[in-house]
Write a protein that binds this DNA or RNA. Sequence first.
DNA 1: GTTCAGGTCCGAT
DNA 2: ATCGGACCTGAA
Length: 272
Amino acid sequence: MIEITNNIDFDIRKTFECGQCFRWNADENGVYTGVAFERALSLRQDGDTVSFFCSESEFNKVWRSYFDLDRDYAKIREQLCVSEFMKQATAFGKGIRILRQEPWEALCSFIISQNNNIPRIKSIIEKLCEMYGEPVQNPGGQSLYAFPSADKLSALTESDLASLRCGYRARYIINAAKAVSSGKLDLGTLSKLPPESTRAELKKLCGVGDKVADCTMLFGLHLLDAFPVDVWMKKALAQHFDADFDLAVFSPYAGIAQQYIFNYVRNGAFMQ
DNA sequence: GTTCAGGTCCGAT
DNA sequence: ATCGGACCTGAA
């Protein structure tokens, strides 16, 4: 087990519940368990101490980067405090960190998320993992599965995904898997292109528009300036920002700003 | 029965 | 270029 102490800027609940990911779940004791990079992890938090139930080498090799622990979010929040609203949003979201999720998982998950609600999104993704993901070792006992590879999904047909009940998105998933698996879309080099090209490449996929492309960039490619705008963000921008507001003031962290704003308008009334 | 949910596609202007 | 309707699904 690894403990991070005196940890003033990492709140695992906020990080997992702020809407960026779909596969981390808490048990009745507040212990979160999830899977990434074909590994299961459980972790818990007491005050400013976060305990990772894994070896030190695994923590350093996988999870330190996954949780973006070497970035100074306090400093970024200072930059983002350009208005009273942003002061409130950043204060409310203090402790959120943008996860470095796997590119394919992010792309596929946000394709599934379109015009859908969160409980269904989660259940579709879990079913997808149970059906086609590789089982991972889990000291905690319960069966856990990795997110299925694009290669694996590229060999499926829409009828193979029928039991997911994901509707018209099944076609999008398989098409995207084929593009990635064949190399037509190279997720490995995508983040090295100019951001507008990255976005354009993603949007070539059927079922990937602005929102899904931006979520893939922010959450899957860790391009922190990507700024996904969904219905909640539209409302927030209309209500709390001038019409001529220039997002460039958030650069290069517009995506982190987005997450604070989204979390504040979406969860503000219910969490604290 | 209707509406809604972290949008996108497609055809009509 | 922009706009509106259709779209799988299942919970409320």
